[in-house]
Design a protein around this nucleic acid. Structure first.
Lengths: 157, 157
DNA sequence: TAAAATTCAGAATATAATTCTATCTCGATT
DNA sequence: AATCGAGATAGAATTATATTCTGAATTTTA
């Protein structure tokens, strides 16, 4: 892991603020908003992509529309060596697993899982999690209702 | 809450699969990929937006690039009346709070919070969470390292 | 202070989005 | 089986946008 300098200025922040809420905004509109030339914006956006400030552009899809109605968080206790994350990497390969976090205390992971329903969750736990070596125990928390779910960051300036 | 029919077919699923990984893909490229006319794709995308299948287009920004290096999950026990979510709604208004989930058991919430560092987290808990009426207790879990963090869903067919 | 690198505007060009219309498909009805 | 109508699509024409290029201005570096 190498130290990276991002060196962002006000204009970059403004672009990021616009794009994180509307990734399909066009160059011309950003340019108008910031009173700059489209070509200048284009260059900056490309640089933000190159420098890995912008990681990806996602369409946020309504889970209910494709019948993925159940959201759960599962704490997973594992016998991973600290630093190495064998179990974590295996968990990350599961498509239904949206997030895998290595958490402090309890030598464990917290994962976020989306399935159609509780039956599908049980299947996944039995057939997929159950096959991963090194998992000692799991504790599952079911989400009844989601009040907010966004990935927007608080951008400076 | 009204029952909604989404009525998606194979072509819609393919479009969604392309767009959830690359929201800035253009019409022409989707059309080429699916061997269809751009106009047909355009209509479908617009309908997917209208029907709230596609909820938003986001740029995923590298938290490190804007100095938001600490991720935490906090369990919050609240004295909310079931169904009503006064505390949940207040939590959702906090910009650093990316997610608010009403969870089963323990009459509580699970929230996901991003701050610059642990100092900023403590500040937020004291100054912002501390001011919310109805919070009985909190339990904080710090993320040491994130192995995976995506919002991609498993799309059928 | 000079040279190099970066940033940006504005024009020219290439590419893509959008609109429109004719055609096609498919299910319902008679 | 024939007719009708709604919805979906292709393809052409038009409009809008992205991209490239150049030169000038500014900032950084040596």
């Amino acid at each position: 892991m190498t130290k990276v300098e991002y060196n962002l200025d006000h204009v970059d922040y403004k672009i990021l603020r616009l794009m994180q809420d509307n990734a399909r905004i066009n160059n011309a509109d950003i340019a108008r908003e910031l009173s700059m030339a489209p070509s200048a914006i284009l260059e900056r956006v490309k640089k933000l992509e190159q420098k890995n400030v912008i990681l990806q552009y996602n369409a946020k899809i309504n889970p209910a529309a494709i019948d993925q109605k159940l959201l759960s968080f599962i704490f997973i206790k594992a016998n991973d060596i600290i630093g190495e994350q064998k179990v974590g990497i295996l968990l990350a390969e599961i498509p239904e697993v949206q997030e895998v976090h290595d958490i402090a205390g309890d030598d464990g992971y917290l994962i976020k899982v989306r399935t159609a329903d509780s039956t599908a969750l049980v299947d996944l736990m039995r057939n997929t999690l159950g096959k991963i070596e090194g998992i000692i125990s799991t504790r599952t928390t079911i989400v009844l209702q989601t009040v907010k779910e966004e990935q927007q960051l608080v951008i400076p300036e």
